[in-house]
Amino acid sequence: MKSLPLLQKLAIAVLICLHLAVLGARFLAPYDPTEQNRASTLTAPSRIFPLGTDEFGRDQLSRMLWGGQISLATGWIATLLALGIGLTLGVAAGFWGGWSDALLMRGAELFLALPWLYLLLAVRAFLPLSLSPWAMALMIAAIIGTVGWARPARLIRGVVLSAKEREFVYAARGFGASPWRLITKHCLPETYGVLLTQAALLLPQFILAEVTLSFLGFGVAEPAVSWGNLLQPLRQISIIGGYWWMTLPVLLVVAVAWGFSALEDALASSNRANSG
């Protein structure tokens, strides 16, 4: 960790702090994020409202903290789902090969050819509007995750394919090891590196997917808060031109993107160091 450039370390630190702040929204947010104050709409940051208010008089700071819960959680759940599916299918295809492998490769190719943002929006549109915000967030996470398994699956398949050809796997077979043991003890440890880098790649993409969805009006419905919802007012030119504090949520998105990018670089250089 010591050899990381300062900017990288800073970006990762900011990312972690952001997560912690969002997790502690209950304690850190000064107001209820949905509470409207008709008397103080679109006020600039002040002592009462540290980051200003929006067009309904809702406190931006609280909305940013609480909104992060939905956006970040959706991203994390979707990532875990995609990695879980990708790991299972990739291990099965890589280890047993044959038709299961051929099936996986064709399927992955198909899913990779899907214009996933379009599909995500389309499926979301046909979902009932009556779902609660968390149920909706979970559904969105499920859709993103089930569409995004293809790339991790292919990578893991590759790793397992080469791992199972290594001599120590043959040796273990020679001792009568079961396939389960071969997979868990010898092949899986080789996948950890790939899993981590994929996680660092997918997390920002999936978090961003939720933000984009909400930004376009197809995420969680009002009055629930997500970072995408916070960015929605910016679609109006009057807002984007006149009220600078309304653009602050953009920094959240940038912080997430930069943080994960730095994390990915750090992982890549540590992988290089380990295998070099």
Partner: peptide
């Protein structure tokens, strides 16, 4: 690389306005 499309688009819009 760290600026997502969403941010870039809003940025450009902001500057244009």
């Amino acid at each position: 690389l760290g600026l997502p499309d969403l941010v870039l688009a809003c940025l450009v819009l902001f500057l244009a306005v």
